[in-house]
Design a protein around this nucleic acid. Structure first.
Lengths: 230, 230
DNA sequence: CCAAAAGTGTTGGTTTTACACCCATGG
DNA sequence: CCATGGGTGTAAAACCAACACTTTTGG
């Protein structure tokens, strides 16, 4: 920023944030989309988003959108990329800062999503998307997979307590490949990001009850940069 | 982007791009900075940048800034992060999309930098910086180091033809650590991103002349996601 | 022939992958 | 007692880190 003048207001683009909200539901990786009620792209599906307000940071704007759509409180939220092609929105110059969020499939998540035009869609069967949102989703999935392999972010998709099999299944769903049970467990244990509880998942159908684990909150950063699942 | 209205022009933030331009010079990792001639932060150093014009993409804006400052043609350019704290610029709401660029230390680079207030600064001895630019530089260095370890981006800091020792030295300067010559060479060879020329670096002082290599342009992406220097 | 930089392999340790059986519970 | 899912170890292969000498050139 070396120039000494500010562009006149009419030369300014609008700035929005769009939040790619991922969740594991019904054994699938889903993303929350909103059906557009008005042109452009009326009837097409879009990533939730909105304009950045004068006195909020980008992250605050993203959290606000997230809460409006899902009612969630604690989430993993990370800035993804900024999309700014001049023609990406036919209404005018709109630059969007995309974020991605991971939310847990529990009751609180359903709260805000009462609008019938807000729905979870499988990442494997996406509808037609508005604007450049297909590109944004593609980028987000790539980043999520990458993050999952290199950091301990997978826990953000599960409730506080979970079994190792549930965790492995979460990884398998997102990565789209099966993992070896023993190797998976060894890596997770070696990463020292879990603590055992003395509770078990009971009455869960057949079979031996599985021990419940929790994620150690403070462990996240340490795991970064060390490959979890090479 | 679900909302059907656009914010009125007066509610809109200004959007700039700032480009962190790295180069290897005098055996050191340097960044191009501009001394601010006017308030705010008059006399402090800043990352080159400017406002995004109505009909250019973010990347085009970044390339334009880069060319204005350095006159360079081909460079490595990558979007870094978008900084948007409401108070980051005392003149008003300015959201900046930061990029980072790698340029080669050759004559063409000096062309545009005639302004006496544009100077290369060592990343190890940074002056006082304007705005949140210290944070942006910190982030950029982190990303550069990371990229260097995981991808074949190091070649972007060297001229078309270079010796393996020059390449190793480039890596050592950026990473801030020494590397083992034999292991380094093995990894580079195994990555199959270089092609030999039949020329040698001659009259370069003492010693046996070193073979010159070139980077295979198409090889970049293949190397991604496979750790080059763990 | 000396100084300077280029170039080249091996070994031991660690990490990763592939793989199969016994355990605890509920019905 | 059987069906279901939970839990556990080992061996071979791949990979990584540490390490020192010979080659080529110019002066």
């Amino acid at each position: 920023m070396s120039e000494g003048y500010l562009p006149s207001p009419t030369e300014r683009p609008a700035v929005s944030v769009d939040v790619v909200i991922f969740s594991l539901r019904e054994g699938d990786l889903k993303v929350l989309l909103i059906r557009r009620a008005a042109p452009p792209f009326k009837g097409k599906w879009a990533i939730p988003g909105g304009f950045v307000r004068a006195n909020e940071s980008l992250e605050e704007a993203a959290l606000r959108e997230l809460e409006e759509e899902t009612g969630v409180q604690e989430v993993y939220l990370e800035q993804l990329y900024t999309f700014g092609e001049p023609k990406r929105d036919p209404r005018g110059r709109i630059i969007t800062v995309a974020y991605f969020a991971l939310v847990v499939d529990d009751v609180s998540t359903h709260a805000g999503a009462e609008a019938s035009e807000t729905q979870w869609h499988s990442m494997h069967a996406l509808p037609e998307l508005a604007f450049d949102h297909a590109e944004i989703l593609k980028y987000a999935l790539q980043r999520l997979r990458y993050k999952l392999e290199y950091t301990a972010v997978g826990f953000e998709l599960l409730p506080n307590e979970f079994t190792l099999t549930e965790l492995q299944t979460a990884y398998e769903i997102v990565l789209g490949e099966t993992l070896d049970k023993r190797n998976f467990r060894r890596r997770i244990q070696d990463a020292e990001v879990l603590s055992e509880t003395n509770r078990y998942r009971e009455g869960d159908g057949q079979g031996r009850p599985a021990k419940l684990y929790r994620y150690k909150k403070n462990a996240t950063t340490e795991v970064k940069a060390r490959r979890l699942f090479p």
